[in-house]
Design a protein around this nucleic acid. Sequence first.
DNA 1: AATAGTAACTAACAAGTGTTAGTTTATTGT
DNA 2: ACAATAAACTAACACTTGTTAGTTACTATT
Lengths: 189, 189
Amino acid sequence: MKLETRKEEIIKTATKLFKEKGYSAVTMRDIAKAMGIKAASLYNHINSKQHILRDIIISLAEEFTNGMQTVQLSEVSSIEKLRLIVALHVKITANSTYGMASLNNDWMHLEEQLDYYLELRDTYEENFRNILREGIKKNEIINSNLEIMLFSMLSTLRSLYLWIPKKEDLNTEELTQNLSHMLINGINK
Amino acid sequence: MKLETRKEEIIKTATKLFKEKGYSAVTMRDIAKAMGIKAASLYNHINSKQHILRDIIISLAEEFTNGMQTVQLSEVSSIEKLRLIVALHVKITANSTYGMASLNNDWMHLEEQLDYYLELRDTYEENFRNILREGIKKNEIINSNLEIMLFSMLSTLRSLYLWIPKKEDLNTEELTQNLSHMLINGINK
DNA sequence: AATAGTAACTAACAAGTGTTAGTTTATTGT
DNA sequence: ACAATAAACTAACACTTGTTAGTTACTATT
């Protein structure tokens, strides 16, 4: 059983750099330099640049998939399910702020795992859509354009990684509360 | 007076490719190939790859700056101003779907013009913030966390480019209407 | 017919790319 | 003390990158 701490350090460093400049603009020499070693040394711990991206994106995508599963199984109202989804996004994003940038912006650079990623994403969106649909059916949610509601909420949740790091004193509970309220009730007085 | 149609074709082609893979991952040979010519031929019309990015991003950023100016000068309620901002985003995004991807994801690859871009962006956000602030003061908008409201609305508006192309039968009027309603009143019944 | 402008080409460059091979050094468990 | 492992190194590879130089062909204006 390996501890793999060095490998994790590399992935962590790469994740930070990927957020700043994107996967394609970051070179193996950039990653090595940030760690104070030579590029060739990275290959004692990782298989390829592509594998780093894969590790970052797929693990996050699976976290979302698992979280959505839990939300679906919980026996609460549709509105409450939406609140749980907001909480899920806040939690994952707060723990992996940098990685969320890759998930959002570099997924198209996945090679072998691209199809798998797209499958996870499509399924996630479809589950989200179904929760909204159910809410409309049960008269908890306004019967407005389904896709626009989905798009609007997902956009905000997916962009969270851009805002969260700015708050030093992040209270995830409070953020979840405020954000849910805004997405559900709007800003009108 | 030059017509520059060829230059515009190059920028248009590049914009499309930039949206698919990002600025860094698109090569001059990619752009040339998409036009059926050789990479060196591009330089008869453009100065550099960097200048292409500059053209795409700065012109869009200035469009937003100008639009915001108009909104500020209009003598309507704060809520109505927000509706005008939504309309501005929908209009620009519908006209430049591909370019919006660069504006959102590749601005950090700007070189000489990076500071200018950041200035435009900061000013835009500050103006947006002031409209919300005024709305709260005049009791049109709930007195909730200002930054979260700003973040939430901007995220949705900035992500519009990802959804708009999926709608073939885009009715910008209707989209603006639905989106404004959602952002202002939420989804609660 | 001569000129200028537009737009393509081939060939080449210097620098940078991800990655491999082979080696050295330090640490750790027996 | 020995062997094994982890983790770094140098050197090099084949390929790709943005870009320049110099040239050729076509078209429109004088």
